[in-house]
């Protein structure tokens, strides 16, 4: 061969071993309770999403609602730099801008219609009846007014009690954002935990 082979191999293995210090960065993780946030609309199934997402932040760049945030080290290196939506801070308005621009196909493009909205699987909402004002007889109905699919994903009972229909609920998180009770009486569970 034309190159000095011993030097080549030593250099190659030196370079190969050097980046194995990176997993040690996991030790810098803050020891606090891990929150599970929603993925943006159109996300692949969680393990597939993690293998496709390169953390290029193009989804956050186009989001008109400014609701896409990025994981730090709280869930480890595998999650570092991947996008999430914190429903309690700001829910997703299902404008489908982020999944149109995702370069690697980690977010599958969906049509900007009601059909497209119903194809989103971010999570499912559920009501904690003990907390909810309406279930305690004090008419509220804020979550119903926030729901982008009223009548389908959510209907109202007596005293505007919210009734979530899980087969239509897409988990956008607008109800959790809107809920006036603290702590929130309606919550969205991410689909990868269901």
């Amino acid at each position: 061969m034309w190159f000095p082979r011993k030097k080549f191999l030593i250099g190659f293995f030196g370079g190969f071993l050097a980046p194995f210090g990176i997993p040690l960065i996991n030790l810098l993780r803050a020891k606090r309770r891990v929150k599970n946030y929603l993925r943006p609309p159109g996300a692949l199934e969680e393990s597939q999403f993690l293998s496709a997402c390169i953390g290029c932040a193009q989804c956050a760049n186009v989001c008109p609602n400014d609701c896409i945030r990025f994981y730090g080290l709280e869930k480890g290196l595998a999650y570092l730099g991947t996008p999430y939506i914190d429903a309690r801070a700001k829910g997703c308005i299902l404008c489908m801008a982020c999944n149109q621009v995702c370069p690697t196909g980690a977010l599958v493009p969906l049509p900007k219609t009601e059909q497209g909205m119903l194809m989103v699987k971010m999570g499912k909402a559920h009501v904690l009846k003990d907390y909810c004002y309406s279930y305690a007889g004090r008419t509220c109905g804020v979550c119903y007014k926030a729901c982008p699919l009223p009548g389908k994903a959510m209907t109202l009972g007596l005293y505007e009690t919210p009734i979530v229909h899980k087969e239509y609920c897409v988990g956008c998180g607008l109800c959790e954002q809107a809920c006036v009770h603290m702590p929130q009486a309606i919550r969205v569970t991410p689909s990868y935990l269901l």
Partner: peptide
């Protein structure tokens, strides 16, 4: 070496490496 190692770590951990 760093390129190959990065690809191995990307498969093992994630693209964030």
């Amino acid at each position: 070496g760093i390129l190959v190692s990065g690809l191995v770590l990307a498969i093992w951990i994630g693209h964030s490496v």
